[in-house]
């Protein structure tokens, strides 16, 4: 089990119902994609937030990553929708 800080933004944050949390992850969670699949098993709010997994963006330690990126050693993992700044 590894402990990781998760942060959520925009409608991902609203649907999960909190902006951040610390979770213990099973060893079977290796990549960012594994993390999304794992979170979806934790409750309806995660299922609703992460329903369209392919549109969810992931950042590890404040840098964008693809879903196949390994999360080992991550201090902070952020999940959020496509960005709409500017």
């Amino acid at each position: 089990m590894a402990s990781v800080n998760l942060v959520y933004f925009a409608w991902v944050r609203e649907r999960i119902g909190r902006g951040e949390e610390t979770l213990e992850l099973p060893d079977s969670v290796v990549t960012a994609g594994d993390l999304l699949a794992h979170l979806k098993t934790l409750g309806d709010e995660y299922e609703a937030a992460l329903e369209h997994e392919n549109v969810i963006r992931v950042a590890i330690n404040q840098e964008h990553v693809e879903h196949d990126e390994k999360i080992a050693g991550a201090r902070e993992i952020a999940l959020f929708p496509p960005m709409t700044g500017g």
Binding site: F9, F80, M83, T84, G85
Partner: peptide
Amino acid sequence: LKTAAPFWKKEHGADGSEGGWV
């Protein structure tokens, strides 16, 4: 900046309603 900087816009309607995320 528009596609990679982590910002998100939510609309507030002129009729007082809270609109959706852009």
